[in-house]
């Protein structure tokens, strides 16, 4: 999920009310032949920001770095616990003949993800000719990804987490005292999906709905968020 994932935040906010996580999948089981299935971890897109009193979110580099490390730890623990091998996606050399295709497959994944959010997660907007099926694919060219990473599946993760700045916390107090109006603090939300690298099928897509909870700045809390993101992944 690359730059275009930014627009997902808008969609997710508009389309997904409620809280907790919402998940769709084509299967409950990973394909397990003789060996453990191998999952390629695509570079997770994680951003932790500070929300100012004025309402802007400002990216925080130190928090983001910590969250990436915490998530990596929690993710590996989870995959080990379900008996899956994993390998990290290593971006190819710019000069490599596959560089453009590998890159575009990731962009296509973001576009397909957006279609899933818009036309599957929102029941009123579902496409009638699809007959309610959760059926989305990146196509067989994902074989290039499988070949590149020697893996059976690819896991994509997008996560946004924000926290009220000291000024915003002060504002929350002032607003509550003066006019009794609640001012929202930070918000956590995320998306992840699993793609079958033989067929291109999106076998699972999960949305962690926006919530004013969770804290990716600590390992313990990151484990909880990671659990919410991944516990319904096919095993």
């Amino acid at each position: 999920m690359r730059r275009t994932a930014g627009t997902l935040i808008v969609l997710a906010a508009v389309l997904l009310g409620g809280c907790g996580a919402q998940s769709y999948r084509t299967t409950e089981r990973l394909v397990r032949t003789d060996a453990q299935p191998c999952i390629m971890l695509m570079p997770p897109d994680i951003e932790l920001s500070e929300r100012t009193a004025g309402g802007t979110t400002e990216l925080n580099a130190a928090w983001t770095k910590a969250a990436e490390a915490h998530f990596a730890t929690a993710l590996r623990e989870h995959l080990t616990s379900i008996g899956a091998d994993f390998v990290e996606y290593l971006p190819p050399d710019d000069a490599s003949p596959d560089a453009q295709l590998l890159d575009e497959l990731q962009s296509l994944h973001a576009t397909v993800g957006q279609a899933i959010l818009e036309y599957h997660f929102e029941p009123a907007l579902r496409l009638p000719a699809k007959k309610g099926q959760f059926d989305w694919s990146l196509g067989p060219e994902v074989a290039k990804l499988a070949e590149h990473g020697k893996a059976d599946y690819a896991l994509f993760v997008w996560l946004r987490d924000s926290y009220a700045s000291p000024a915003r916390m002060a504002l929350q107090v002032v607003a509550a005292l003066v006019v009794g109006v609640p001012v929202s603090g930070g918000v956590q939300q995320g998306l992840c999906s699993l793609v079958d690298l033989k067929t291109g099928q999106v076998v699972w897509f999960n949305a962690l709905l926006p919530r004013e909870a969770g804290d990716m700045r600590t390992l313990e809390e990151s484990r909880a968020t990671t659990h919410l993101l991944l516990d319904r992944m096919p095993k």
Partner: peptide, 8 residues
């Protein structure tokens, strides 16, 4: 940021 915080 300073301005927006103050306006808030």
């Amino acid at each position: 940021r300073e301005w927006d915080d103050m306006m808030a």
